[in-house]
């Protein structure tokens, strides 16, 4: 804002140092994943040579590929269902006035603020009573709670910003309500739909507690659970665990950063409304 060039330069330098310190653990995880084991044992900060053997080791571990497949199935399914549920709900909350709307808003806000631990016990018991323990179905369904509220907020914000004239013009032209939504709204909403779907995927991808509580068999494990099993007491390697960590973290981080602009506003709105 104000201040001379040199002051700005100094503050940029300070920002860089702070950013490095805050990201240091993440950088260290990445470096650990590309270091040969002797470098890790000697605690060398910088790898003597860059190696991919840790990544090869991870993908050769029994069950890692199965877990990768499971995580993709659960993540993509819950992302698609979340988006399909959130889009009409957001449209309804944005465009119509009706009795009970306040209650719906409250329910969605409440779902967002409710931490998983607070309802873990009944969810575990209900899933067991339904005979869905150790199924991907149970994970897909419970993971909907992670992204659905935020998806509704973000999409509602988007729809609020689209002028009603567009739809009214189409209505006057004789299009049905449904046609208006599909032909007019859907194309405009596409970027936002992709953003909230991606976010739902990212949340499901890294989810740990529900997976830990609902899954005990190796063929339905998701990636976070598979990473845990890499702590093999017999042939344990930090490099392998860090490589597994990078495989899990990288898609989540990249996808979030790509859609950051669309998501951050909705996340803040959700927090501040509470």
């Amino acid at each position: 804002m104000r201040g001379g060039r040199s002051a700005s330069f100094l503050l940029d330098g300070l920002t860089g140092v702070l950013l490095f310190l805050l990201l240091f653990p993440v950088i260290w995880i990445f470096l650990g994943s590309i270091k040969p084991d002797p470098d890790i044992m000697a605690a060398n900060p910088w790898p003597t040579r860059v190696t991919f053997e840790n990544y090869i080791a991870v993908f050769n571990k029994e069950g890692f590929l199965v877990a990768l497949r499971n995580s993709l199935i659960v993540g993509l399914s819950s992302a698609i269902i979340t988006t399909a549920l959130a889009a009409p709900a957001a449209y309804s909350l944005s465009r119509f006035d009706y009795r009970g709307k306040a209650a719906v808003n409250l329910l969605i806000l409440g779902t967002q603020t409710l931490p998983v631990v607070a309802v873990l016990v009944p969810i575990v018991v209900i899933v067991r009573n339904l005979g869905l323990t150790n199924t991907l179905t149970a994970l897909i369904f419970t993971h909907l709670a992670l992204g659905l509220p935020i998806a509704v907020w973000v999409l509602k914000g988007y729809i609020d910003a689209i002028p009603r004239d567009l739809e009214e013009a189409a209505l006057v032209d004789g299009c049905g309500r449904f046609e208006v939504m599909v032909r007019v709204m859907l194309p405009l909403l596409k970027p936002a739909l992709v953003a909230v779907g991606t976010f739902a995927f990212v949340l499901s991808w890294g989810e740990y507690l529900l997976a830990l509580s609902l899954v005990s068999k190796s063929d339905v494990r998701t990636l976070p659970l598979a990473l845990q099993t890499l702590f093999d007491p017999y042939q344990f390697s930090w490099g392998t665990v860090m490589a597994g960590g990078v495989v899990i973290a990288l898609p989540a981080v990249l996808l979030f950063l790509v859609f950051r602009k669309q998501l951050v506003g909705g996340l803040l709105a959700g927090a501040v409304k509470g």
Binding site: M1, S8, L11, D12, T15, G16, L19, L22, L23, P25, V26, W28, I29, G32, V202, W205, G206, E207, Y208, L223, P224, L227, Q228, W238, V241, M242, G245, V246, I248, A249, A252, V253, F256, L257, R260
Partner: peptide, 30 residues
């Protein structure tokens, strides 16, 4: 501030927050 550094840092600062707990937890154990 409106500098290139500040803008880049505003994005990168989010990395620890979006990194899944399982990765952060094992990373810190390391």
């Amino acid at each position: 501030r409106e500098t290139a550094m500040a803008r880049t840092a505003s994005a990168l600062i989010l990395v620890p927050w979006v990194t899944p707990f399982i990765v952060v937890g094992f990373g810190w154990r390391f």
